[in-house]
């Protein structure tokens, strides 16, 4: 019951912040409400007893990505910051609303009518032990993930180099 109450609070925070995030004209406010959405999603992970995932969500998304957005907003445009440039066209908003509602109805009906909901097991009450996560992340047997782990480190290195290459100032020769 307490879980259900917590879920409802988190759902209201997530959905409300997401709606404000996509509908506000000021881009800085959108970034701030994105932060609230990310914290809410981390709360959902904690509610599912995936504490490691929630901590990773807070440290990567809320700590890293939001900072990146705020720096980018401060670097990009003063006019956008003051909310002068973004104009929403009525026609586009209505078309987007209709498309989103149709898609939402389709997805919700498909998810709720599907048979796999009947397989829903009793959710385990204890969290996944850290030892199990560490062994699965760095083991090389079946259902263990050392190859994607190493691959994503190479991928992050490639993205660092790519980001520097794209964002540096070109020398005028």
């Amino acid at each position: 019951m307490a879980n259900l109450v917590m879920f409802c609070i988190l759902a209201v925070v997530i959905i409300g912040s997401a709606i404000v995030c996509v509908s506000t004209k000021r881009i800085m406010r959108a970034a701030t409400f994105l932060l609230f959405v990310l914290f809410g999603v981390a709360g959902i992970y904690f509610l599912l007893d995936y504490t490691f995932l929630g901590a990773a969500q807070i440290s990567i998304y809320a700590g890293g990505i939001t900072m990146l957005y705020i720096f980018a907003i401060q670097l990009v445009s003063k006019r956008t910051l003051q909310g002068l440039q973004e104009r929403l066209h009525g026609g586009r908003v209505i078309a987007g609303c209709i498309a989103a509602l149709v898609g939402l109805a389709t997805v919700v009906v498909i998810l709720l009518k599907n048979k796999f909901i009947d397989m829903a097991a009793q959710m385990g009450d204890q969290e996944v032990p850290m030892e199990k996560i560490g062994t699965a992340l760095l083991g090389s047997d079946k259902y263990q993930y050392v190859l994607p782990f190493e691959f994503i480190s190479v991928f992050l290195l490639a993205c660092i180099i790519g980001g520097i290459m794209i964002a540096r100032k070109e020398d005028k020769k």
């Binding site: 996509v22 959108a30 957005y69 973004e86 987007g96 498309a99 989103a100 919700v108 709720l112």
Partner: peptide, 26 residues
């Protein structure tokens, strides 16, 4: 499921309506 579907389509709506690059990324 309903929560994540709602979140997905709010993001979709923002992606379709906004014309600012950073807002689309958000």
């Amino acid at each position: 499921f309903v929560l994540s579907a709602l979140l997905f389509f709010i993001g979709f709506f923002g992606f379709v309506t906004r014309r600012n690059l950073i807002a689309m990324l958000i």
